[in-house]
């Protein structure tokens, strides 16, 4: 008998008392009524608690704010589907401006190598949805977020989130996500509590997380 058959048989034998399948009581909050403004405030509070840097700007002011944030960088990577408008205020290489910035674009067709990703100063991505109650930003591999590796290897992650994509509780966010998409849920920069259970930011993932929220 194969291991598969044998294990399934063992389980069925173990369940020969035919335990009842209980109804699931879902009395927990699955949707909420916080206003957009309250959700924004809550998310900012939570992210700052995780030691992320949060910037709230009107959508029109995003390119300028992003350029300001990246002022000290020499190179960044972006996913192929990131809104090009966001990058419009960056001092691009080849323009002859002072403090020019090399922008590498990663796409499934032309993926960057690990070494190339390790060499850039930052990555700029979009986000699928965010949960204000837990301070969690979800990436689902969509065109504005790219392959999982690009938001992992660079030491700084600048995440651009539309305020309209902020929900309050986790069930609301999960309802918007496709389960089978490769996902990364991010709640602050990389951290550890492994030494005396004290939280310390900055281990293997990006040690700096900047969140640019567009209202």
């Amino acid at each position: 008998m194969s291991a598969r058959e044998e294990i399934l048989d063992r389980i069925k034998s173990a369940l020969r008392d035919s335990p009842a399948v209980p109804q699931i009581p879902r009395n927990y909050r699955r949707e909420t009524d916080k206003t957009a403004e309250q959700r924004l405030g809550q998310l900012v509070d939570r992210l700052e608690d995780y030691k992320a840097n949060v910037f709230v700007v009107p959508a029109a002011g995003a390119p300028a704010r992003l350029a300001e944030l990246l002022a000290g960088c020499a190179s960044i990577v972006v996913p192929h589907g990131l809104d090009p408008q966001l990058l419009s205020a960056l001092p691009r290489t080849g323009t002859g401006d002072a403090g020019t910035l090399a922008v590498a674009v990663d796409s499934p067709e032309r993926p960057l190598t690990v070494a190339a990703l390790d060499a850039v100063d930052a990555v700029v991505t979009g986000a699928a949805v965010a949960v204000s109650e837990t301070g969690t930003i979800m990436l689902d591999g969509g065109p504005s977020q790219g392959r999982r590796i690009i938001s992992l290897v660079p030491d700084r992650h600048v995440c651009v989130l539309r305020a309209a994509d902020i929900v309050e509780v986790l069930p609301e966010a999960m309802a918007r996500l496709e389960a089978t998409a490769p996902q990364t849920w991010i709640s602050g920069p990389s951290a550890t509590s492994d030494i005396e259970l004290e939280r310390v930011e900055g281990v293997h993932g990006p040690r700096t997380l900047d969140v640019l929220i567009l209202t």
Partner: peptide
């Protein structure tokens, strides 16, 4: 997360389903 590290959410959660071409 609240029960284990006493955080509202752990810093990272990864979800994958089989393979995704070009990713991982």
């Amino acid at each position: 997360p609240r029960s284990s590290t006493g955080e509202r959410m752990n810093p990272y959660t990864s979800l994958w389903t089989g393979t995704t071409p070009g990713d991982g």
